[in-house]
Design a protein around this nucleic acid. Sequence first.
DNA 1: AAATAAATAT
DNA 2: CATATTTATT
Length: 300
Amino acid sequence: MREDDWNWFSKWEEELPSPDELMPLSQTLITPDLALAFEIRGPSHQQQQQLQQQQNRQNFSAPPPPPQPDSAEFESSSAELGGGAGGGEEPARTLKRPRLVWTPQLHKRFVDAVAHLGIKNAVPKTIMQLMSVDGLTRENVASHLQKYRLYLKRMQGINHGGSAAASGGGSASSGDPATDHLFASSPVPPHFLHHAGGRSNSEHFMPYMPPVAAVAAVHQQQMATAGGHMQPQYHHHRQMGQFGSPPSGQFEHHFLSRQAQMGASNLSTGIVNGGFADDVESGTAANGRKVLTLFPTRDN
DNA sequence: AAATAAATAT
DNA sequence: CATATTTATT
């Protein structure tokens, strides 16, 4: 039984954080230009995040500007922007922020940030700053942090004195794939697994992290300017084969290029790892500094 | 209809 | 900031 589990688990694992595990359903809600024009500071993180995912790994082969004006709606999306006449379209300014999707990559950044900050300093604000993800709000982080803490707690309950957590490539799973999918995807730093009631000694290591510097924040931003480009991609659902039955299999859609800049800007505390390898996605580490666009971080 | 994830309110 | 509650998605 167990082997079987592991069997499909492995598969699951591979499938889960697939290189391009992103399956963006495009749904045009409002014209990007409009949003940007209004400088709405909300409706754009998804794109960024998704793009981050894409950009993280390898994604350098798609034609940047899809000059395909037509491109029928993918599934069921249409009639959204009323363009002017028609009838009552919601004012752009009152648009509520689209739902933020926590992708594994994003979550990883999150975890790394928390790990490097140490539980003590790991508060939403700090985390958010460290992550340097544009568009990410403190609330987003807070909410996620909340869930994450819960997750950790549960984990402890199940595997308290255990040694299941494999470091390195092993997935630190308590053997229960049913656990929160997202959280499971990221290696949980060991120190997180301590029980709260710090009784006895064991102060653990890592009082706090030394102030390191540097690191890039990824950000994706399209220069508004001539030419419409980039459609707001809203990905709605992530419906992935939950069980070993990867029928369709290949999803491959990467369009739009991204620009990134490396930013060593103010406040960036940098997630340079001291222990947890955080291969800063972007391949920057490789050697060539890939240019990541760091935005004049004006994150909330 | 139930379960989960994120948002929002306290 | 933390926690609780509500809302949206699947």
